[in-house]
Design a protein around this nucleic acid. Structure first.
Lengths: 234, 234
DNA sequence: TGTGACACGATGATATACGATTTCGGATAC
DNA sequence: GTATCCGAAATCGTATATCATCGTGTCACA
């Protein structure tokens, strides 16, 4: 999907700010810069062989996305993405994605449905020799296929933003709760059938939302059984 | 709510980037910088008596919020906020705010409800000598009172962000469709009663969402009767 | 021995300067 | 008369330098 590596060809056309942006983002994604890590302008600038100015700008961009926290006259550090943030983002995503899916439902062609079902088929196959990372990737593809035609581009932006927010953490969702995967693909098929049968948009939205919050619930029960009911359900 | 003016006292403690940020934002809000306006770094820097660097940073911040568009080696211009954007943002807000209100409902105290009802009372009073601007301000206060205790801070951020996005345009909503105001305050009371009676969260969410999308619908019918059904309802 | 203040080092914030890119206008050729 | 090409001006992108601020260690004093 997202290429975080730089080829020399791209380097020529990309502004240094963006080079720095991708470089830092890559480091964060690969856990090289773990949460709480202190991002020092000078060091990064030296590492990338550029001035501090582009680095600074890159960091402010990352700040806007919520990946790093910034404190005046102190500097930036990688955001603490503790479970709390993960939960809140997942719940937000359930709401956004549910709505986006409903807003896209009536615009999906039979081809779109078929493609989504194909992806879900791939997911079922991987259930044998389970690879959490690949499964999560396919999962995203599946849902993207459903909401990408959302009639409201702003909603789409919000969904994408929330996915990006979860980016450096989402790889692991299904590795925590392997049992959830099988249930997940069944719910996918259910959502597809709702869309095909032109079910009320409210139903589609509810199904899509519950599908994601069920993943969150499974995660919570698995990881934090004592506070699994911290977030109200709908 | 949001103070866009700078007092000299604040000027001392605010970083220049943030001064520039507020200044530009204020100009955009007050329509002094109308959509399409070319934001020239040097000119703004000269105007504010600072270097271009803080101005640049401010503009990038505004870009992240979607208020300005940026093109490499060309510069920034104020985003075109045509009706389309307004509609999409309003619909997104209806979804976000509806969910946030539901997520806050169980946490509201009787005091909170009373305060909200008080605000709604003020709105009813202003119906006599109708002032669209004041009414819209109270409207925001009312809803903020309901969703501000949202259990999910991320949702709150998203709601605030969407409000900000509508900022420079929202003043006019109710001036377009004065008739909508009376209906609006009735719906407010309805929402309050749902919360008081501990209605199912789904009901509360639906009511809050429909309340806002009804405002959007009224606006659409009034302004663009020919394409009023462009956005699917829920 | 503990606590406070002061000073020094590290880092971010801003200013100035220069180089790169784009845009726009005019001149020339067809 | 129109299209194209070239050049100058404007503006952005980046580097270097200086100033302001914060964190921390140390020293003096209670």
């Amino acid at each position: 999907m997202a290429r975080d590596e730089l080829t020399s060809a791209e380097t020529a056309t990309l502004s240094k700010s963006q080079q720095a942006y991708r470089w830092i983002k890559g480091r964060i994604a690969s856990q090289e810069f773990s949460p709480g890590y202190r991002l020092v302008l000078g060091s990064i600038a030296g590492e990338l062989d550029m001035s501090v100015v582009p680095v600074r700008e890159a960091i402010r961009q990352l700040e806007a996305e919520g990946l790093v926290m910034f404190e005046r006259n102190v500097g930036a550090r990688v955001s603490m993405v503790d479970d709390t943030h993960y939960r809140f983002s997942m719940q937000s995503l359930s709401i956004l994605e549910g709505a986006a899916t409903a807003l896209a439902a009536r615009r999906l062609t039979v081809d779109d449905i078929q493609r989504a079902r194909h992806i879900n088929g791939l997911m079922i196959e991987t259930l044998e020799h389970f690879d959490p990372r690949a499964f999560t990737g396919l999962n995203q593809d599946f849902h993207a296929a459903l909401y990408e035609k959302c009639a409201n581009p702003r909603m789409l932006d919000l969904v994408h933003g929330e996915w990006a927010r979860l980016g450096h953490l989402r790889d692991s969702t299904f590795s925590f709760v392997p049992g959830r995967a099988a249930e997940s693909v069944r719910e996918h098929e259910n959502i597809l059938q709702l869309i095909e049968s032109s079910a009320p948009l409210g139903e589609i939205e509810k199904a899509a939302r519950r599908h994601r919050s069920a993943t969150l619930d499974a995660y919570m029960i698995h990881e934090h059984p004592d506070e699994a009911l911290g977030l109200p359900a709908f």
